[in-house]
Design a protein around this nucleic acid. Structure first.
Lengths: 206, 206
DNA sequence: TTTCTAATGTTATCGGTGTTAACAAAGTTA
DNA sequence: TAACTTTGTTAACACCGATAACATTAGAAA
């Protein structure tokens, strides 16, 4: 358009979107500040007015990723404890499948070192809390075993995270042929985590 | 000895070791062919006589990593099914904790794309089979539920893989304060995967 | 309106990377 | 010895992130 303006006005937004496009199409390693700048039609150092460095730009992508993940998990209805747990697990895995490169960026500790971007850490924590709350509710309603909450959430998170990564990386070839694999895997853990009041009713609340 | 020979004689081995040292000390992104060459005292292009490219060198590191992992898993004694399953899980997580950067390289689908290095894929498969065999044995001996083997192995692998990654990325802060976290997590899945839930083994959760 | 300042661009440049081409030396074999 | 293969070398290309020094503009202050 007729916008040869010296001040672009929308550079951070557009850079963010460009980086996200590249991430989705290729991988995080393919994200180059120079390429982004050229695509937008701006000089490379201009980006440094809005992002401290390349890693910070990647961190912002990961932050929006965690927000999307959180929103997705929040949309799971929470009436029945078992259904809530199963569906939140499925939503988690689906997110990873839909945004594989973004998911790897969010959790690739190698790419974004953990203490380096406080806002990123907090965004991750907020998404994690949705999962934690669901597990806690499952316990409060008596559906899950009354084991320590950190233990149960660590187990649940490990399973969905591991499953997501294995599927994304193609290590579970049955994932496409068997779309209910995730459901079966989650069910296996769920059935084992159920509280069975008739078999043994000891209260070992922490 | 220290002979400034034109032909080095041990270049691939030394390059491999150098790369491994750098990987352990920093990360895979820190591995630079030029730096390795300089350290060894050879020109950078010399490495291309022994490695097709940088990625192939990384793939060879990952291959040895899978061999180590497999060896580690093979050392778990297989008499009692429950003990075997628990200890193979613990050995798996311990490997990841002992070699975090190597583990990330082995499983970072972003770094080493899956179909690109056949020897790597096979090495990973051979390590995986040790886990699969242990699960199969647990089923044959009647300890685990008679569910489809791919489902049970996918579940077990997801859990140990997810747990490993979350621990080495620092997402489970209790991992250091609670060294028995891995054991508790694995026990939770194990108890739920048992074929006959009436027999009570001893309590292992703190 | 005019002026001053902070924000936001620019070009030039530095040091670094993987990789290839062209060439040279050493080892191997006929 | 002569031919050939292997394994090194230097030079160069095309990128990359990042910084310094400078130019332009927008917006508040006078």
């Amino acid at each position: 358009m007729s916008r040869p303006a010296y001040h672009h006005g929308d550079l951070p937004q557009q850079a963010h979107q460009q980086a996200l496009d590249i991430l989705r199409a290729e991988s995080d390693t393919a994200i180059s500040l120079r390429a982004i700048a050229k695509q937008i039609g701006v000089s490379a150092p201009a980006l440094y007015r809005h992002f401290a460095d390349r890693e910070t730009l990647l961190a912002e992508l990961a932050i929006t990723g965690f927000q999307w993940l959180r929103d997705s998990l929040l949309q799971v209805e929470q009436d029945d404890p078992r259904k809530a747990l199963l569906h939140i697990g499925l939503a988690y895995v689906s997110f990873a499948q839909d945004e594989p490169h973004l998911y790897r960026l969010m959790f690739g500790g190698r790419i974004l070192p953990k203490g380096a971007h406080p806002r990123l850490d907090e965004a991750g924590l907020e998404a994690f809390r949705v999962l934690e709350d669901t597990v806690a509710r499952g316990q409060q309603e008596g559906y899950l075993k009354p084991l320590p909450l950190p233990l149960m959430t660590a187990t649940a998170w490990s399973l969905v995270h591991g499953l997501s990564e294995l599927i994304i990386d193609g290590h579970l070839p049955g994932a496409d042929a068997e779309p209910r694999l995730a459901e079966s895997v989650l069910t296996l853990l769920l059935d084992g985590s159920r509280n069975e009041p008739e078999s043994h009713t000891e209260e070992t609340t922490p």
